[in-house]
Amino acid sequence: MGNRSSLLLREEEIAQIQTETGFTPNQIERLYSRFTSLDRGDCGTLSRDDFLRIPELAINPLGERIVNSFFQNDDFNDRVNFRQFMQVLAHFIPIKKNKENKLNSREEKLRFAFKMYDLDNDDMISKDELLAILHMMVGTNISEEQLNSIAERSITEADEDGDQMISFEEFCKALQRTDVEQKMSIRFLN
C-alpha cells in the first residue's frame, strides 16, 4: 500500500531531496507514494520494466528513451532509487525567477533534451542517432529515403563546424528560439 510506506520516508531524506531538487515536502511525499506503487517488487528501487508497466508510457514512441534517462548516472546499476528518480523529475520543474536551482535551469533542460538523441553518450548527435530516433517516432510509416532527407536537413541546419554532427553547443543554438522552458516543464501542484 502506497500510503503506508510513505511513512518510511524520513524527515532528513525529505529535507535532503528538497534542497537537491526544489520539490516541496508535500510533493516529495506524493511522488514517493507514486514511486512505491510503481515498485511492484517492494524493493525500494525501480527497474526498467517497472516503468514500462505504465501503459501510457509503454505506447509512447519515445517511451524507452525516456525510461533510459533515469538510468544515466550509473551504467552498472539497472535499478533507480527514489533520490535518482526525483533528480530526473526535477528537470521538469518550471523555472522560477528568484529561485536558483541546479537541475531545472534552461541549460539542464536542454541537456536532458540533448541526451534523448545522444544514444551512445559521446556528447555528439550523429546522423545515425537522429535516424534511430526518427525510426522510433514513425515506425514503418515513412520511407527510408524520406527519413534520410529529414535527418540530413536537420543536421546541416544545426551543424556549424561542418563535422556532420551536432554538438551540445550547436544544439543549444538551434533551439535558441524554442520555448524550452515551457516544453520541458510540467505543472506540479502544491
Binding site: R34, I166, M184
Partner: peptide, 21 residues
C-alpha cells in the same frame, strides 16, 4: 529537433501520474 519534446514531456507526465495503473 524540438518536435519530439512534446512526447518526452507526455512520457514523464505519465511516469508521475497516469490514468490506468
Amino acid at each position: 529537433l524540438s518536435t519530439v519534446y512534446e512526447y518526452v514531456k507526455a512520457g514523464v507526465e505519465a511516469i508521475i501520474e497516469d490514468d490506468v495503473t
